[in-house]
Amino acid sequence: MSTLEIKDLHVSIVTEQGVKAILKGVSLTINTGETHAIMGPNGSGKSTLASTIAGHPRYTVDSGSITLDGEDVLAMSVDQRARAGLFLAMQYPVEIPGVTMTNFLRTAKTAIDGEAPKLRTWTKDVKAAMAQLRIEPEFAERNVNEGFSGGEKKRHEILQLELLNPKFAILDETDSGLDVDALKVVSEGVNRTIAAGGLGTMLITHYTRILRYIKPDFVHVFVDGNIAEQGGPELADRLEAEGYDRYLDEETATA
């Protein structure tokens, strides 16, 4: 079992108006085999948490720690974190001109594993994974995310998740902008990876819809850069019925 531990994390960004604190003391522990849903209103810091774990240069960690099985994640470069077993499915995957999906996937797999995958089994694995996510074979020869629709980009994020086989997956609003069919396909992909064993999942979402397809063990509600409430799957049901207004009102009342 592996453990991703976030302790009292404070994160800020530099904006035109000056330094802005976004995460204000987040603590969260995820073990492999567990699925944690991180929910919350816009601007509550959910995506910041995801990007900070992956090491996006825009975010400054002011204090606190992130460790993976005791190893200091914050001391690692972005690619070292990925090789240590962290995977971020991006909310807005970028297009990369000049690099085909085939080339990209093989290069990433080689980097993660430390050796090139065996060509024959690799090609077979990629084809099978693409078929399961209903990705047309022609996408293999297209440049990474170039001209892909929103749904196609998200499917390719999950394709990478399945092929790279990380210890922890952080899914940053993977459900946003998907229709129900695409949502099902993407959820099935995540569930396959979880079922294959040993994946710790951080499922960041604004909506409860995806939780019908991917069952969380824990639900954390994010409000204003901190965890306002935690619970089991029943908390998600309550959020679906009541929305986030309760937390926002509280915040206004205390302010």
Binding site: A54, V78, A82, F87, P93, A108, A111
Partner: peptide, 11 residues
């Protein structure tokens, strides 16, 4: 773009 590739383990 660099972040995306690095986030997939590529140096």
């Amino acid at each position: 773009q660099l972040f995306y590739l690095q986030a997939r383990g590529i140096q």
